[in-house]
Simulated assay, not measured.
Amino acid sequence: MADLKYYDIIQKPIITEKSMTAMEEKKYTFAVHTEATKAQIKEAVEKLFEGTKVAKVNTMNLDGKTRRRGRTVGKTAKSKKAIVKLTEDSKDIEIFEGL
């Protein structure tokens, strides 16, 4: 497994209608590194966003989609998604405010 730093684990926030409604329950969705574990994701969120405390982390491994270009068939890259639930006394994550 690669030596991952906390700033390499979280790649970008995922902003969809479903993830925006989940923010009311203090659940935030991120695209994360494919080799990151739940403990690493928890540590990365708590270090990157000051004042946050993670209660739970759910992860999903997404396989690449099959794509065709003429006769050649290939696959897109696989990815991983994490839904992070914060504790009740935790601060909100600032990058999602104002959306």
Results as ranks from 00 to 15, higher is better:
Ala2Cys: 02
Thr87Tyr: 11
Leu48Ile: 12
Glu17Pro: 11
Ala31Asp: 06
Asp89Pro: 15
Leu62Tyr: 12
Glu88Ile: 07
Ala44Tyr: 03
Thr52Ala: 05
Val32Trp: 12
Ile15Arg: 13
Thr16Cys: 03
Gln40Phe: 08
Thr87Ser: 14
Glu25Ile: 04
Arg68Thr: 07
Ala36Thr: 01
Phe96Cys: 01
Ser90Tyr: 11
Ile14Gly: 04
Phe49Met: 09
Lys38Gly: 09
Ala44Leu: 07
Lys78Val: 01
Pro13Thr: 05
Leu99His: 07
Lys78Gly: 11
Glu97Trp: 01
Lys12Arg: 14
Lys85Val: 07
Glu97Arg: 14
Pro13Gly: 01
Lys65Gln: 12
Ala22His: 07
Pro13Ala: 08
Asp92Ser: 13
Tyr6Asn: 05
Asp92Pro: 06
Ala55Tyr: 15
Lys42Gln: 10
Lys38His: 03
Val73Glu: 00
Gly70Ile: 04
Met20Leu: 14
His33Ala: 10
Ala36Ile: 01
Gly51Cys: 10
Thr29Glu: 10
Ala44Thr: 03
Lys42Asp: 07
Lys53Phe: 12
Pro13Phe: 05
His33Tyr: 10
His33Asp: 10
Ile93Trp: 06
Asn61Lys: 09
Glu88Asn: 10
Val45Lys: 04
Ala82Gln: 05
Lys65Asn: 07
Lys26Gln: 11
Glu24Tyr: 07
Ile41His: 07
Val57Tyr: 08
Ala31Met: 13
Tyr7Met: 13
Gly98Lys: 14
His33Thr: 03
Ile9His: 04
Thr59Pro: 05
Thr29Arg: 08
Ile14Ser: 08
Val84Glu: 02
Tyr28His: 06
Gly70Lys: 11
Lys27Gln: 14
Thr16Arg: 05
Arg69Gln: 13
Asp8Ile: 00
Phe30Lys: 04
Ile9Gln: 06
Asn58Glu: 14
Ala22Asp: 14
Lys38Leu: 09
Ile9Trp: 09
Lys12Pro: 01
Glu17Gln: 12
Ala36Cys: 01
Ile10Trp: 01
Glu50Phe: 11
Val32Met: 09
Lys42Arg: 13
Ile10Lys: 01
Ile15His: 07
Lys47Ala: 11
Glu17Val: 06
Glu35Lys: 07
Leu48Asn: 06
Arg71Cys: 00
Ala31Ser: 14
Lys85Gln: 13
Ile15Cys: 08
Arg69Trp: 09
Leu99Asp: 02
Phe30Ala: 03
Thr52Ile: 08
Met20Ile: 11
Leu86Val: 04
Lys80Val: 02
Lys56Asn: 13
Val73Ser: 00
Glu35Ser: 05
Asp3Phe: 15
Glu97Pro: 00
Lys75Ser: 01
Lys26Phe: 15
Tyr6Pro: 00
